[in-house]
Structures are given as structure tokens and as C-alpha cells.
Design a binder for these strands. Structure first.
Length: 649
RNA sequence: GCGGGCGUAGCUCAAUGGUAGAGUUCCAGUCUUCCAAACUGGCCACGUGGGUUCGAUUCCCAUCGCCCGCUCCA
């Protein structure tokens, strides 16, 4: 996955990005800041194109999706309701021996004998100290045995403090002076460590583990000091795999915290959103009431999100400040669909299920969105062969998710997630209903009408299933049984009156990841050899014309002819209002083409002497040069704009 | 957060305990003709902070950043 060749490719991509102004490191002049990236001129255009394509595909070209633009900082209760405050602040601890990281609340409690060590020192230094003491009994007022036992127990405070009083010599140059003795002890002699042994295991294995630990600290041949044994019940302070002591739990704060208002007390704490989705849920009722939409419909949002990633890696792939393009598509619960349509339509095999139908249940809606999203990626130049679909296994799903498909891209550093399309049931709206006390249910005329036509057996059956589904959610969320049953009963009665909490399908994509995928996919190298046999490698960024930062380069063939320049500028001015165009007259024409190849500009227009009428039949025509094969064709200036627009939209 | 590697011009790479050099890019100019042409001229660098030293880009320490592995990935 990370073979040298692929790392080299990634390095080339990073270097190109910086060199041509796609991506810079944030705050670079101050040494940079990990996990933050800026987009340069070309990157900004590329990103804007991608976001605008997403937006128009998802909202403007659809009848059933509307937009939202919410704030980054919201009421902190939102993040309690969403579960982020809890899950983003897991206390973590590390194994002192293997450095493996654990979530403190997920360590298995264990019982057994704990072997504590006060420290360790080099065996050689220990022996030397002991021999020195034993061979000079007359240097101490107390017994030599006592001094040695203090040494073995690692009770160095006493060795260096109390013991000093019992030494005969007060001469600091004497080999028995405190400083001289301490010097002999060597490094790392008082780092406390412990190993938990399950009952029945020999103490030797605890010592062996401890020796490993101290030798990792840099003691070559450790002599363990101050061993003592303690019986411990149900402790989570030890690594279940090897018994090693863990570091004390440290809270991991994965959300960015800030304070709202002039005072900075706990009361004022707020968070920068870690995802854009929650605002959509929080504003669901407002949008429903003001957009004249009815379920099924969606709300789309593009915006920044912030996560304190443990390890920002792989260029912009995992950034701490990033941008998301999220859709929450609200659908009727399957029970409601069943009542209205008589039966719930489920997927018939793989592939796009076609135009949405009233009978669709959540599974087919989910598949629909997976296929829609892949279609989008294909439309901006990521062939299906570069993508992978990953259906999360039941045990990988978050507890509220019914299904989740990751759309992965084959990055040079590995196949990684571009977008997740989750079927999230009615979890999110239910959470916000519970936490805010506001209703998140919708009224569905069709449902009420259809319900009236059901026979009693069917009513009872559907009602019972909806009741069970609601009860499952409520009890899982920690609502006490009696209350949960009462609420679920109300919900089931609501269904009979045409009310329900919508379920949701969530296609959630990372803009920056997509940009990186587009850049990696577009990157290609062309090696040419000239007449003198000198070969050189040039980079061509093969962006799809729809996303390319610059759509067209406009050049006068030569710089020193004012007529050419005037005509070229005229052509440039006629295009720039319609697309991102770039005028360049610096250097030889081949150099200008090469520069545009690196920027990924799909078309270059050159104004030459024929344009000015040197060959009368070519008057007011220009050459258009194609980026990917270098081929040229000749076109009247009057047709240029239409020709280009047809290819960049 | 841990372990390993790296840090000289926009890029690729030199040299040096005593004024840092080349190619390329970039900028300006010459040239009537299409794929980084040639020629002329020009701009630009020792990641940061300490220490050792008369003097540090060079030696030492710390720090920051990047890359790789581990860890994390709601």
C-alpha cells in the first residue's frame, strides 16, 4: 500500500501542488501548522468548480432538494444530542511497554497480583555499589545489610538523605559521600512501573515484563529495585494483553472548543462544528415549513468542519479544518410506505434503480443515492475503475446506522474514503426531538388517507412494528422502560394519524479529499526527447474540463507584434466573462502551452498572422490546441465561445 | 503521543568552521510563425531558537515542519 514508488508519486503531486499554486501549507512563513492547508489560485478555482458542480447537481437540477447555509458555531446542546460531546472526548491511555493506545473506558477490568517496581538500574552499577558498601563496613554507623537492603529496595531518598547522617565520612571527595554514590547508580533508577499477573502465573514473568520496560528506557542490563506485590480486584489500569501498567487516562478532545461571549467560563463553552449535518437536523422543521417540500426531500449544505485529528496525514487527506458537502435526504419510514403503497419496494439487484418511486423503502433509496453519487464522480472525471464501493459490515456500523456504503478512491497512499452514504434511520431527528423537547414529526396526508382504508388486522400489525422500532430506539438511547413504552405508544398512535419522524439517507462527502483525488487522478507525466537527444519530463494535469481551474489559455503567437497582442486581448476579453480564461504572452509559445498543461487547462487558443488575414480565407480564425494530445484545430473566433462552453459544462 | 529518516533559491542538487555555487523555473529584453528554442540581463536560499567558538549553514541541544511505521479514524 505504501511502496516506495507510490510515495514518490505522492511527493511529486505534493510538490506540483505547491509549485503551481494548488495547495500551500497553512502559515508556512511561521513554520506551518499541522493539519491545516491553504488553496492557492489554481486550487481555489478547482475547489470552487467542484463545490458548484455538487451544488447544482444536488439542488438546482433536482426538484426534491433544497439548500442550507448554517453557522459553524451552534448551541452546544446540539453536540450533546448528536453524541459528539461524549464520543469526541474519550479518555485515552497508552500501554507503557508497547505504547499501544486504549480507550480508557474500553479496557477490560482485571484481577490478580500486581508487581510494583520502584525503578531499575544497571546491574553492573548495582553490583559495584553493593560491593563498595560491603567491602567498607566501617564507613557506616548502621549495619551494611541495612544499607544494601535500602539499595535493593530502591529507597534512594533514604540512601541519599537519612543515610548521609549515618556515614562516617563527611568529606564530599570520599567514595562514600552521597553525591559519589548517587553518581554510581546510573540513569533511570526511579521510574515506577507495575505488571498485573493473573492468579497462578509465576512472578518471574512479571519481572521479565518489567525488565523489558526498563531496558526500553535505555538501561542495558536492568536490575529491578523495590519489588512489592499487591492484590488488586477489577482494575482497568493494566493492559489486558501483557499486564503492563497503562498511563493515567488523558481526555482526548477531538472537537475544537471556543468560548462565546466576553467571559471564558465553562458556561460559555461552544464548539466548532465537527460536521455540517447536525445543523440540517436542527433546522429541519424550519426548512420543511418554508420550502414547500414534502417528505421525501433533502437538505444540502456545503461548509467547513473541524476535527482535532489525532494524526493529520497524507497531505490534505486528513485535515483539522476541512470542508464537507452533505445531503440529508429525508424519507418516510418503511411502515408508512407500506401503508401508502401497499408494499415496500426493495432493490432488485445491483445498479441504479431509476427514477424515485413512492413505493421505495429505505434500502432502495440508499442504493439510489450510492449510484447517484458514483454517477457524479464519473461526471467530473473519476472513472469507476478508480473508485471502490465498500459496504460496511454489520459490526462496523454505528449503532444507529442501518447500512453505510463508503465510496473509496485509489489514492497513491492507499484506497481511502471519499464519501460515506449512510442510512441513519430516524436516529438524528429523534435525538433532537428528545434533547430539544420540540417535535420533529411530520404530518403526511397520504398516510392518513391510506391508513383509513386499512383493515384492522393490518392496522394492528403495522402499528405494532412501528411501536417496536420506536421502543428499540428509545431504550437504546437510555430512556427508562416505562417512559420509553409510553412514548413509543404515542408514536405508534401518531402514525395512525399520519405522523412520523422521517428517516434519513446521508451522502456525506469531503471536498478536500475529492480535490486531492482529482489532482492525483489528473497527474500524469510525459517524457519527450528533443533533436539533441535530451529528454525531459513534463507534467500534464488531465482534469476534466468541467473541474479544470482554467478553461482556456489565450496567446498571441509572438509578443513583439502589437497587432497580434491586440487581437489576442480582444479574444481574451470576449471569453473571460463566460469562463475562467488566462492570457499569456510571456516566453515562447511551447513554453506557454507547457505552463497550461501543468495547470490542467484543457484548451489553448493561439492568435497568429492568419488570424489577422495573412491568408485571407483564414481571417478571424484561431487555433485551438488540446491539452491531452497536443492536436490543433482551426475555428472562427465567432464560434469560439460556443465551442468552449459546450465542452466545459 | 511513540520510534526512524529528512530540512541549502520556486524546483533539482553542490560546497564550506571564515564573502554559499550550478542547472532549471520565474521576471525583463532581442527574434515573422506553434509545443519548456537560442541569446543577453536580472531576482531569489542555509526551517526557527539557543549553546560551543574570535567567527556556525557546517559541531551540540531544543523546537517547528515534512516523510515512513505504530496508534487513532466518531
Amino acid at each position: 500500500m505504501s511502496e516506495p514508488k507510490e510515495n514518490v508519486l505522492m511527493e511529486k503531486i505534493v510538490s506540483l501542488c505547491k509549485r503551481r499554486g494548488f495547495v500551500y501549507q497553512s502559515s508556512e512563513i511561521y513554520g506551518g501548522i499541522q493539519g491545516f492547508w491553504d488553496y492557492g489560485p489554481l486550487g481555489a478555482e478547482l475547489k470552487r468548480n467542484v463545490k458548484e458542480l455538487w451544488w447544482s447537481t444536488m439542488t438546482r437540477l433536482r426538484d426534491d432538494v433544497v439548500g442550507l447555509e448554517a453557522t459553524i458555531i451552534m448551541a452546544p446542546q446540539i453536540w450533546r444530542a448528536s453524541g459528539h460531546v461524549d464520543t469526541f472526548c474519550d479518555p485515552m491511555c497508552d500501554c507503557l511497554l508497547t505504547k499501544k493506545r486504549f480507550r480508557a473506558d474500553q479496557v477490560e477490568p482485571q484481577s490478580g497480583n500486581v508487581f510494583w517496581f520502584i525503578g531499575a538500574m544497571e546491574t553492573e552499577a548495582f553490583e559495584e555499589c553493593r560491593n563498595l558498601i560491603q567491602e567498607n563496613p566501617n564507613q557506616f554507623t548502621c549495619s551494611v545489610e541495612k544499607v544494601v537492603s535500602l539499595l535493593e529496595a530502591g529507597r534512594l531518598v533514604e540512601l541519599s538523605g537519612d543515610l548521609a547522617a549515618s556515614m562516617q565520612s563527611r568529606d564530599s571527595e570520599s567514595p562514600f559521600s552521597v553525591p559519589k554514590l548517587l553518581l554510581k547508580l546510573g540513569p533511570h533508577y526511579f521510574k515506577e512501573y507495575a505488571v498485573m499477573l493473573p492468579p497462578g502465573k509465576p512472578p518471574e514473568s512479571a519481572r521479565k515484563t518489567a525488565l523489558q520496560y526498563y531496558s526500553k528506557l535505555g538501561i542495558k542490563a536492568p536490575k529491578l529495585l523495590g519489588e512489592r506485590v499487591e492484590k488488586v480486584e477489577n482494575s482497568t489500569r493494566f493492559n489486558p494483553e501483557n499486564g503492563s501498567l497503562l498511563t493515567p487516562p488523558v481526555p482526548f478532545n477531538l472537537m475544537f472548543k471556543t468560548y462565546v461571549g466576553p467571559t471564558a467560563t465553562e458556561e460559555d463553552v461552544a464548539y466548532l462544528r465537527p460536521e455540517t449535518a447536525q445543523a440540517i437536523f436542527a433546522q429541519f422543521k424550519n426548512v420543511l415549513e418554508t420550502s414547500r417540500q414534502k417528505v421525501p426531500f433533502g437538505i444540502a449544505q456545503v461548509g467547513k468542519a473541524f476535527r482535532n485529528e489525532v494524526t493529520p496525514r497524507n497531505f490534505t487527506f486528513r485535515s483539522r479544518e476541512f470542508e464537507q458537502m452533505e445531503l440529508e435526504f429525508f424519507i418516510k419510514p418503511d411502515e408508512a410506505v407500506e401503508v401508502i403503497s401497499g408494499a415496500v419496494a426493495t432493490p432488485k439487484g445491483a445498479g441504479h434503480p431509476g427514477e424515485p418511486q413512492p413505493s421505495w423503502g429505505w434500502q432502495i433509496w440508499h442504493q439510489y443515492w450510492v449510484e447517484e453519487r458514483i454517477k457524479f464522480y464519473e461526471g467530473i472525471g473519476l472513472p469507476r475503475t478508480t473508485l471502490e464501493e465498500y459496504w460496511q459490515k454489520p459490526e462496523e456500523l454505528a449503532h444507529y446506522a442501518r447500512a453505510c456504503v463508503d465510496i473509496l478512491f485509489k489514492f497513491p497512499f492507499g484506497t481511502q474514503e471519499l464519501e460515506g452514504i449512510a442510512a441513519r434511520s430516524d436516529f438524528d431527528l429523534s435525538q433532537h426531538a428528545r434533547f430539544s423537547g420540540k417535535t420533529m414529526g411530520v404530518f403526511d396526508e397520504d398516510l392518513r388517507t391510506a391508513w383509513g382504508k386499512l383493515d384492522d388486522a393490518k392496522k394492528k400489525d403495522v402499528s405494532e412494528r412501528y411501536y417496536q422500532a420506536r421502543l428499540r430506539y428509545l431504550t437504546k438511547s437510555g430512556v427508562e422502560q416505562a417512559k420509553a413504552e409510553k412514548q413509543a405508544k404515542e408514536d405508534a398512535e401518531g402514525l395512525a394519524k399520519g405522523q412520523y419522524i422521517p428517516h434519513v439517507i446521508e451522502p456525506s462527502a469531503g471536498v478536500d479529499r475529492l480535490i486531492l483525488a482529482l489532482v492525483a487522478n489528473a497527474f500524469s507525466e510525459v517524457t519527450t526527447t528533443d533533436d539533441k537527444g535530451k529528454s525531459e519530463t513534463r507534467v500534464v494535469m488531465k482534469f476534466h474540463p468541467r473541474v479544470a481551474p482554467i478553461k482556456v489559455g489565450v496567446f498571441p503567437l509572438l509578443k513583439n507584434k502589437p497587432e497580434l497582442i491586440a487581437k489576442a486581448k480582444e479574444v481574451f476579453e470576449s471569453l473571460r466573462g463566460h469562463m475562467m480564461a488566462f492570457y499569456d504572452d510571456a516566453g515562447a509559445i511551447g513554453r506557454r502551452y507547457a505552463r497550461q498543461d501543468e495547470a490542467g487547462t484543457p484548451f489553448c487558443v493561439t492568435i497568429d498572422f492568419d488570424t489577422l488575414g495573412e491568408k485571407p480565407e483564414l481571417l478571424n480564425t484561431v487555433t485551438i490546441r488540446h491539452r491531452d494530445d497536443g492536436k490543433q484545430e482551426r475555428l472562427p473566433i465567432a464560434e469560439l465561445q460556443g465551442w468552449l462552453l459546450a465542452r466545459i459544462r
